[in-house]
Simulated assay, not measured.
Amino acid sequence: MQVIDKAVEVLQLMANDPSKKFWRVTDVSNGLDMNVSTTHRLMQSLRNSGIIHQDNSTKKYSLGINFIYYGGIVREMNIPGIVIYPLMQRLYDELGETVFVTIKDRDNCVVLERINSYHQLRFVKRIGETLKLHEGACGKVILAYLPVSILDRTIERIVEGEEHYDIEKLKKTISEVREKGYLVEEVPKMDSTTFSAPVFSVEGNYVASLSVVIPKCRLTESKTSETIRVLKEIVAGFMVDTV
């Protein structure tokens, strides 16, 4: 099992830095603080299975083409992503901004589907991109609809090690999401604002978050009101049949 864990760490390192296309063994070894010979053996095994690719001339490694195949299977198996796509398309058609769907994966929210904006200045979302549940609007919407019995434990776990994190502020935000049915949150470091709302199953259970992110330079007061109206209208008129 330890070998599998280390192999997963290698793949996560390579996948989590999309700006770096090619990796030397020493890059991975240094990034994971792993012995060079161990890293080399792992990467050779991953190459032999087609999970990663090695260039014959440079000897550098990159993620393999098999990831497209496996990713396609996962997307086809994921009912929320398939069913909610028409909502994304409608929201995109109405606003022309980057739209994305996120689901809960342990203590993270993961981008399951996305349609990126056509504007030259835009925020590009990657399928598989992850954030901690308390780090963005989409994750806070997920937290808002967790069962009360596990909410406090989940919050304690995800903020562990963040000494100055304001848990009471997070809980207040969660309460506001439940009251309003959506969340609007500024992202100062990205100079943008994210709008998120929950999508429910026909049984009334939370399924996913539908979100749109808009650069501040295009966000007028009227567009803010319009975005909230359209988002609420779309999610209110749609429920996912998960059967």
Score class of each variant (00 low, 15 high):
R178M: 08
E94L: 08
A236G: 14
N116T: 06
Y118G: 02
S149C: 08
E97L: 04
T242K: 08
M14N: 05
K20G: 11
L42G: 06
A7T: 02
D107K: 00
H119L: 03
L13M: 11
F123C: 03
K189C: 10
K60H: 12
Y182A: 06
V148L: 12
V235Y: 05
T39R: 00
N205R: 10
Y69K: 15
M14V: 09
P198R: 00
R218S: 08
N16H: 12
K59L: 12
A137H: 05
V243A: 12
G128H: 12
G72W: 01
M88H: 02
L151G: 09
L95I: 12
P215F: 09
I228G: 00
K180V: 04
L170T: 10
P80C: 09
V213I: 15
N66W: 11
V240Q: 04
M239K: 15
E9Y: 03
D27G: 06
T102F: 00
V243F: 08
E233K: 08
I228W: 01
V202N: 10
D55S: 14
N66K: 15
P147E: 09
R75K: 15
C109V: 11
Q120I: 13
V3K: 11
M88A: 01
K125F: 13
I127W: 05
K169P: 05
L46R: 03
K21A: 14
D93W: 08
K60E: 15
G204K: 12
G136R: 04
E226Y: 14
G139K: 04
V187M: 13
F100Y: 15
V3A: 13
D191W: 12
I142N: 03
K172I: 07
D107S: 08
R218C: 02
V177E: 01
E221K: 12
V141M: 09
F123T: 07
I79Y: 03
I84F: 00
N30K: 14
I174T: 04
D105K: 15
K172G: 06
T39W: 02
K232L: 13
I52G: 04
V25E: 00
D107H: 05
L87Q: 10
Y206P: 03
M14I: 06
M14R: 00
A197N: 06
T130P: 03
N78D: 15
G81N: 06
E97D: 13
P215I: 07
A197R: 04
H164N: 15
Y145C: 06
G128L: 11
V25I: 14
C217D: 13
L13N: 03
Y145R: 04
N56D: 14
V28L: 04
A7S: 13
A137D: 08
K21M: 14
V240R: 03
C217T: 15
R178Y: 06
V177D: 02
V199I: 15
T194P: 03
Q54Y: 01
G50V: 07
L143A: 03
L146Y: 06
R229M: 04
L46V: 02
F67P: 02
Q12W: 11
V83I: 14
L146A: 06
I155F: 03
